[in-house]
Design a protein around this nucleic acid. Structure first.
Lengths: 244, 244
DNA sequence: TATCAGAGGTCTGATATAAGACTTGCGTTG
DNA sequence: CAACGCAAGTCTTATATCAGACCTCTGATA
């Protein structure tokens, strides 16, 4: 066993392997939905034992970056397949579950990043962003209005057509059209009153209490990629969360 | 290697070890804050290899039931020590972090379980419950009103004195006074309007939008133990969540 | 053509061994 | 008495090996 990094920044071997794997993932060497090489194979490439690869892969699987399938192989997680697309949607009807999901695009515009957006996306103030607005219906009830902002530079040519073509599944679209895989997000929730505009979009009276959800979404290596702000009518739905 | 359970209900060895560990934890063999025996020691007791124990302990550590400390040992997670007491409190000031936390007890009463509460706590309808109400202040601002319900049978003698003595840290109290360790919870969030009563408690105008948090808290083996309902003034605070 | 058995690949579970890293506490040393 | 160094105990990392479980594909068979 080699002991490198004499003093600072020591990282165990399996973490370095993990880093290498994320690097290749983010470089697009293996695409979402595709299998990565077998543990044995990876072990040989990296010249470490299969157990070490296994531990690296295990952590990535724990972070939902990879998906293991016994007897078949290990796959790059994808928003396209497996309804993992829903893993970022915490809204549920009070009774029963999500049967049908439908999104309706309102508009897609180019805007300039204000100071806050820029900072949160790690971009210079004034950078060009794409702002996308839409509503979302669960089981036929329109309950969410939301807007998303992403770097226009990273998502070149992002317009209504592209969104429509992916049926408004944004993360799936980021992934397949732009090779940007969303792997984590931070959300901040508040209760607010509906203003006139949003009330109109959601078919509720102005002043109705809405759940405000603000999100920063990250890709590999915790690079911030998308800002999102949603207003949800929670009269018959709720935001479900598991604490552990 | 033994292959048991020919068809159904097969559980790998490390999971059976894990189950045995949770059992002993729930029996109080090792108390929160205390160390459990070393991996080697446990391996000998259970007559399995250290690696197998390690895997079981690893999962429990991942669930925040145990806490590993390199070079020192593995400890039973505790709400009392380490500010893990806050791991169940997702409320944060919009700017900065939680510096000071203060709870104010309103009342503690015996009530009968309605059908819903009973079902969620896995108790018979009409069972005797203790209902506790309080407000909570962060950095001096009173922002949360909440009520908690627990089985009066499980928490015998639970009254204002006991709560005050533990300075309103409920999970810490459940743990040290009743040996009930809360390990997980499910929450449902909604936005609602403040009614007159709650508005008064929170010093806001009736009709102010509030974040409604409903929670079921579980102890070892996912046994439901507490129901909680909180109303939060989110004008200068938010509920923080991490999605992965 | 349709079905089935089997081979081979892949992840999973279990064990064993060894050395590194971290903490604690003891005993020596200055 | 204080400081230092060392040893022991514990978790952590790494490797190797083997067998089980699960899936896919292929070739034989009816």
């Amino acid at each position: 066993m080699k002991t490198e990094q004499p003093v600072s920044g020591f990282q165990p071997l399996y973490r370095r392997i993990k880093a290498q794997l994320t690097e290749r993932l983010s470089a697009g060497e293996w695409r979402p939905g595709e299998p990565i090489p077998s543990e044995i194979d990876l072990a040989q490439r990296f010249r470490v034992s299969q157990g070490t690869v296994r531990k690296a892969v295990g952590e990535l699987a724990g972070e939902n970056v990879l998906v293991r399938k016994q007897g078949r192989g290990t796959f790059v997680a994808s928003h396209a397949h497996t309804r993992s697309q829903l893993s970022f949607l915490r809204l549920t009807p009070d009774d029963g579950s999500v049967e049908e999901l439908e999104a309706e695009l309102i508009d897609v515009r180019r805007i300039r990043a204000d100071a806050t957006s820029a900072r949160m996306l790690a971009l210079p103030t004034g950078a060009s962003l794409v702002r996308l607005r839409r509503t979302l219906s669960i089981n036929g009830n329109r309950i969410l209005f939301e807007e998303a902002r992403v770097s226009a530079d990273l998502f070149q040519g992002l317009g209504p057509e592209v969104v429509e073509r992916h049926r408004c599944m944004l993360y799936s679209m980021y992934e397949s059209a732009y090779h940007v895989k969303i792997v984590a997000a931070e959300e901040q929730l508040k209760a607010v009153d509906a203003d006139a505009d949003i009330a109109a979009f959601l078919d509720v009276a102005p002043g109705t209490p809405l759940l405000l959800m603000e999100r920063v979404a990250y890709t590999y290596d915790r690079k911030p990629v998308e800002l999102r702000r949603g207003f949800c009518n929670t009269s018959r739905h709720h935001y479900a969360n598991e604490i552990t």
